[in-house]
Design a protein around this nucleic acid. Sequence first.
DNA 1: AAAAGCGTGCAACAAATGTTTCATGGCCGA
DNA 2: TCGGCCATGAAACATTTGTTGCACGCTTTT
Lengths: 290, 290
Amino acid sequence: MAEPAKSSPLSELRIALPSLPLRLQEVGRFVAANDYDATTRSMRDLAAEAGADPAAFTRLAKAIGYSGWDQLRAALTEARRPSQISPFSGRAKSRRHGPNADVALVTDKLEAEGAGLLRIPAQPIADAARALHDAKRIWIAGYRSCRSVAELLNYELRLFRPEQVQLVGASGPDDLDLGAFRPGEAVIVIGFLPYTHASVRVAQAAHRAGTALIAIADSLSAPMAEGADHVLLFEAASSPGFFPSLTGAIAIAQSLAAVTFSLGGTTAKKRLETTEARLAAASTYVPEKG
Amino acid sequence: MAEPAKSSPLSELRIALPSLPLRLQEVGRFVAANDYDATTRSMRDLAAEAGADPAAFTRLAKAIGYSGWDQLRAALTEARRPSQISPFSGRAKSRRHGPNADVALVTDKLEAEGAGLLRIPAQPIADAARALHDAKRIWIAGYRSCRSVAELLNYELRLFRPEQVQLVGASGPDDLDLGAFRPGEAVIVIGFLPYTHASVRVAQAAHRAGTALIAIADSLSAPMAEGADHVLLFEAASSPGFFPSLTGAIAIAQSLAAVTFSLGGTTAKKRLETTEARLAAASTYVPEKG
DNA sequence: AAAAGCGTGCAACAAATGTTTCATGGCCGA
DNA sequence: TCGGCCATGAAACATTTGTTGCACGCTTTT
């Protein structure tokens, strides 16, 4: 007898299936087809939906080598558990050596980050942009490596809403700004693991002040996401390498700015044109060659 | 306050969290961080692992508007259920107008940028990283929206080469730094159309001083790419929207830092560990929950 | 200082869970 | 046809589940 692929409880089930009594086959097929429900709902519930006897589930479990349904379900649950590091299995890629190791690292990284961008939920960004659009004033906070994201967002938003956008801590200690938060304003906090105290303090102050709080973070359970009206998720750890990835955060920030601008309509457009004209007049830019 | 995203039970939880009693906050955080276990394991089990009273879970559920833990868990379970339709087909680019126009804009943008990343040539990045590795000192320059890229690069490189990396213009007028360029050093300039005078001046000064010049730009014919030893190209205009995209530049910057770090070997690793230890000692970060 | 309110842990409760036992009915070999 | 075997459903079982009432301790209020 060939050794069966014992990796997943589901394959054990599938392999043992044909040699089982008729009724147990039915139940087994049902479990295989509805394994999510199998892990979350009760035996009796499943029995009712499958049109079978509850006892059949216990018997099925024992028939394929488990001590009972509880144990089978536990195995299914573990098999289904979302991996904590990377959602996709491609990470197992063996470390390449040789002269091209560096190039391989780069391509892997870029590939992973490109894929990570596609997994960013879009709806929350659109919602958050509307909140920004409605805000009388916008504060932006980000520390350490997230500072770059904060500054980019600050820069782009100020292009068309110059008087209403401000970086937290730009003109003095953070605390001065924290006390200035008011209802009707919006506060954007950017951060990922490990979270800085400063960013959490900003989020808490924003929440207390009754502002619309937007968190750009790597996890729903990030401390600065607590109490946030909008949480925009990206994958900081999605790519190989040693530093958390900011590509997703930047992409979110730029999308946010783009949609907010779009919501601003002709007013925003006019402001942007004014700003650009001023920059050009100051000859900030190198003139394009005709 | 803006419309809270009430879609998922997790967001409801997050929003209500700050206004909850201390103990319930603990439990709520635990649930948010372990939502998979919350759907699969029993209340008492979770309580034991969270070090809390089982009753707290029931109370948490009631506090955020559910009739009991059972109902909250059911909601979490449904929210987690793998969607019957394919996960990414929702990313259809059909609607260009109407209520979903904003969402469409975001998805299009993310898609385009994700694709843009894959088109970034990897070899020049690896080469540039080697130049950085050999440099006695590294200068980084970026203006306007590129400032964020420059600062990120500065931040990450300083994590493992603190004394040798410096942002141009960080400690006074740019010109002081321009005069300090020396052979054997490396200068990174980031910029895209329209190009700022400042960045071009940095590039020229670097070239004159005989440093290794690395340009991160959107075109081979960018003025700061003239005379550059390494040109790292990305697509600034690849995505819809009104602002040039910085996602590619960020990805390049991070890859550059990663490879440079990798070239640094154990020395770089030790430095990074030292830096991280210092940051942790200064309690910059919020401690991870056990 | 006393009282009122609230948050919290403990313990008892009823309901629901997984399991086992038992009786039934069909199947095959003698 | 009979007798043993096994699959199957129903009911009874001990456990475990989610829930609730109660008492203790803390803070705030009068």
